[in-house]
Write a protein that binds this DNA or RNA. Structure first.
Length: 673
RNA sequence: GGGGUUGUAGCUCAGUCGGUUAGAGUGCCAGCCUGUCACGCUGGAAGUCGCGGGUUCGAGCCCCGUCAGCCCCGCCA
């Protein structure tokens, strides 16, 4: 039998911790201390035993040897295995051989007492290893969370939440909780639904965001609202997306876009400082149109300075049909390009280019035309269509001096933005690892930067092919830009919104808008996106009512706390900053949720039809009946059909008149009637 | 819904052209060890090669299907 299973445990009793393990220093030498924690590792040298004791605050070495320690204590110490839970008493002493890699490396605790509070089975994976399979880590998340990295991330997350609360409290915000059980709305992401037991066939929805409630709170007069709240979206996941996530949600009255940004920026400065980064506010403002034109993304990563260029005009007379056709399309289709200067770009291998082409195809491109200027001059997928003059014109247009690589995309703005927006950061990141010129490396990817920016002037609406109508880009409560109000009727797609996203290093970390605060505009917008008067009344009647009773001009923003902490922690996956996350298939490997539920629960929730009555019928003896009296048998059967289920589970005795004399329980087959 | 990728000892992985008894490191168990700190040394136990089917004299390896993890596209107001 293994020792960790058989061991008798000690009680915590009146044992009191005197110090945190990580705090002990030479100053404490000579003091008797009492410590608690987990055994990280035992090093048993025979008659000398070392043990590292870990608590939330650090690690300290315990020691005992044969000459000075009580033999019972030494035996107990030798029985300890990794992750046993211990209470230790001892004297702080200067070490004979110090460990400079450890905060407490100058001292050790010479044990005078040891209690084993609990044993631990060998762990399914080592806590020190980085490369453990994530499914295993998630199955044993409670152990995974013992690891230093996750402890750090959880601490950081807690710090961010505290700083945020303090920041907004100083600015006179009030924290108000909004419902988790709420109403499903037609626009937006798929809702998680909760069936109502009391109202058959009706459902609550979990909130995708407290959007409408925080707007209503403005109508109520809570001019500055904040909530750190859980939100839910039943959509497919990504590395930076979980089905439930935490949002820092704020809303303010009597504000303009700049006022909302003005309370967020100083918070970001404070949060960046927590991880030792200095960022300068105000952050750059970039109109959506420019973001798409230059970076091909509404959340551009400004750590990369390369911009997309339009080269359509150069190919008006080109022999390269693909490009010339775009030039002939009167702006419907364009040729756009990225140029990466430098030796590393100019000497990219065919294999690397093929990989980028595959990437481009995945983003919907037909291929990836390129022009590369390397040691041997030009090599290009459309070289035979380009003479020296055209090459020179292209180089001039791209600003290409010396070596470098240009990649091209042809198509609509949306198509080319998608392809080039993706390749821009991808190629730049790769080149930053191989390029030797430090100035270029910095242009490709400034790895020290925390590149915050506001993307502003989003379009209000976009045409949905699937729905064959305009839908809200942000949400249907977003205020149209005051200068574009007339466009709502004439050219809805061109109407800008007073909406703004906060972007950090290519991630959308927040989004907000000034909201519609009058019922008339709100109704008008619902009409524009094809929500009928009746539907608007049914779904958003309370909002329209609220807007008609003195709603102040208001606006706000929501920050994705998880994503923000992920970026601050410098990790590339949102699961690393969530204590108990779901897998990419929206499953919890630890609890194995979601799971099936009892039929009874389903029936109570009206998700299954009512159960049929089931009768268990035993053998029936006609005790006093002589032979096969048909009439009597008929009476008996009639009696049986009136039996309660309980009576039917048994042996039934009838009198000559067919009445029940006696019924006893027996087992038998069941029948549904 | 689609594409890619991974799955072999508790863990991290190797496994050649389809061919003998599937290996290594680590962890675990036992013994030894007075200055370790990834302690060291000696020995031992440990396998549903994700699962199901097929091809073959023979499958961890080839084929088909399936499940699970991860990444991406669609989706995510």
């Amino acid at each position: 039998m293994r020792s960790w299973k058989a061991m008798k445990l000690d009680r915590l009793g009146d044992f009191q911790r005197t110090h945190r393990n990580g705090d002990l220093r030479l100053d404490h030498a000579g003091q008797t201390v009492r410590l608690l924690g987990w055994c990280r590792r035992v090093r048993n040298l025979g008659s000398l035993v070392f043990l590292d004791l870990r608590d939330r605050w650090g690690l300290v070495q315990l020691v005992a040897n044969e000459e000075t320690a009580d033999p019972e204590l030494l035996a107990k110490l030798k029985a300890v295995r990794s992750e046993f839970v211990l209470a230790a008493e001892g004297v702080v002493a200067e070490r004979e051989s110090k460990n400079p890699n450890m905060a407490t490396g100058d001292v050790e605790i010479r044990l005078t007492g040891l209690r084993i509070l609990n044993t631990a089975a060998p762990l399914p994976f080592p806590l020190e290893d980085e490369g453990v399979g994530e499914d295993l880590r998630l199955t044993y998340r409670f152990l995974d969370l013992r690891r230093e990295q996750l402890q750090r991330n959880m601490l950081l997350r807690s710090e961010v939440a505290n700083l945020t609360r303090n920041h907004f409290r100083e600015l006179d915000f009030i924290e108000i909780e909004t419902p988790i059980l709420t109403k499903s709305t037609p626009e937006g992401a798929r809702d998680y639904l909760v069936p109502s037991r009391v109202h058959p066939g009706e459902f609550f929805a979990l909130p995708q965001s407290p959007q409408l409630f925080k707007q209503l709170l403005q109508v109520s007069g809570f001019e500055r609202y904040i909530q750190i709240c859980r939100c839910f979206r039943d959509e497919d996941l990504r590395a930076d997306r979980q089905p439930e996530f935490t949002q820092i949600d704020i809303e303010m009255s009597f504000v303009r876009q700049e006022d909302v940004q003005g309370v967020i920026e100083p918070l970001m400065v404070k949060l960046a400082k927590v991880v030792g980064k200095d960022v300068a506010a105000p952050f750059p403002r970039l109109p959506y149109r420019d973001a798409m034109a230059w970076y091909g993304s509404d959340k551009p990563d400004l750590r990369c300075g390369i911009k997309i260029q339009d080269v359509t005009a150069l190919f008006a007379t080109s022999g390269f049909n693909l490009f010339r056709a775009a030039a002939d399309s009167h702006g419907q289709r364009r040729v756009r390009a990225l140029f990466f200067p430098g030796e590393a770009a100019g000497s990219l291998s065919r294999k690397a280019l093929d990989a980028y082409q595959d990437q481009a195809k995945q983003m919907g491109a037909g291929g990836l035309p390129y022009a590369k200027w390397g040691k041997e001059g030009l090599s290009s997928s459309f070289r035979k269509f380009m003479d020296a003059d055209e090459e020179a014109a292209l180089r001039l247009r791209l600003g290409a001096e010396g070596e470098g690589l240009a990649v091209f995309a042809v198509g609509t703005d949306a198509q080319t933005s998608k392809v080039l927006g993706d390749l821009r950061t991808k190629i730049a990141m790769d080149l930053s690892a191989t390029e030797k010129d430090p100035a270029l490396v910095n242009l490709f990817h400034d790895k020290n930067a925390y590149a915050f920016l506001w993307v502003v002037d989003f379009p209000l609406l976009e045409w949905s092919e699937e729905a064959q109508r305009f839908v809200a880009c942000h949400h249907p409560f977003t205020s149209p830009h005051p200068d574009d109000l007339d466009l709502l009727a004439t050219d809805p797609g061109a109407c800008r919104a007073v909406a703004y996203d906060l972007v950090l290093n290519g991630f959308e970390v927040g989004g907000g808008s000034i909201r519609i605060h009058d019922a008339e505009t709100q109704s008008r917008l619902f009409r524009t996106i094809g929500i009928s008067e009746a539907e608007a009344r049914a779904k958003f009647g309370f909002l329209l009512d609220a807007l008609s009773y003195g709603a102040p001009p208001h606006g706000g923003l929501a920050l994705g706390l998880d994503r923000l902490v992920m970026l601050l922690a410098g990790v590339d996956n949102i699961r690393e900053v969530i204590a108990f996350p779901k897998t990419a298939q929206a499953r919890c490997l630890m609890t194995d949720a979601p799971g099936p539920v009892d039929e009874r629960q389903l029936r109570e929730l009206h998700l299954l039809p009512e159960a049929k009555q089931t009768y268990r019928v035993g053998a029936v003896f006609f005790e006093s009946a002589e032979g096969g009296n048909a009439e009597l048998r008929g009476q008996a059967l009639q009696q049986i059909s009136q039996l309660t289920p309980r009576q039917a589970q048994g042996l039934v005795t009838l009198d000559p008149q067919g009445r029940i004399l006696d019924a006893q329980s027996i087992s038998g087959p069941t029948f549904d009637f």
